[in-house]
């Protein structure tokens, strides 16, 4: 099947790709998308590149930085002080 950007099936698939990847569509629509992608090379490429983009993005969770030590120490001390001051009876 030749890809045509104005082709209704291609456009419909293009609009719904993220919902498809997130499993947020009815089963019937999912089957339609799969049937179209199996015959349209361009849409399949579109689907697979988007799937990989999402996977790469999710993998960024692994690259979390630690809170800078100096800031963390200073900040935690402040929090501890604030919390203990809130505990002590306050009379104005």
């Amino acid at each position: 099947m030749t890809h045509d950007p104005s082709h209704t099936a291609c456009l419909e698939l293009f609009e719904k790709l993220s919902e498809y990847l997130d499993d947020e569509l009815d089963e019937q629509i999912c089957r339609q998308i799969e049937a179209h992608a199996s015959t349209c090379v361009a849409c399949r490429a579109c689907l697979e590149t988007l799937r990989q983009t999402v996977a790469l993005c999710r993998a960024m969770r692994r690259t979390e930085a630690s809170v800078p030590g100096a800031f963390s120490d200073r900040w935690k001390e402040y929090i501890r002080k604030m919390a203990s001051e809130a505990m002590s009876p306050h009379k104005s």
């Binding site: 890809h3 950007p5 090379v41 361009a42 399949r44 490429a45 579109c46 697979e48 590149t49 799937r51 990989q52 996977a55 790469l56 993998a59």
Partner: peptide, 18 residues
């Protein structure tokens, strides 16, 4: 601009890619 095949990066394992 219309792809004629799925590019290789789309099917590589994440550990190999990232």
């Amino acid at each position: 601009e219309i792809p004629v095949q799925t590019p290789a990066w789309a099917s590589l394992p994440l550990d190999q890619l990232l």
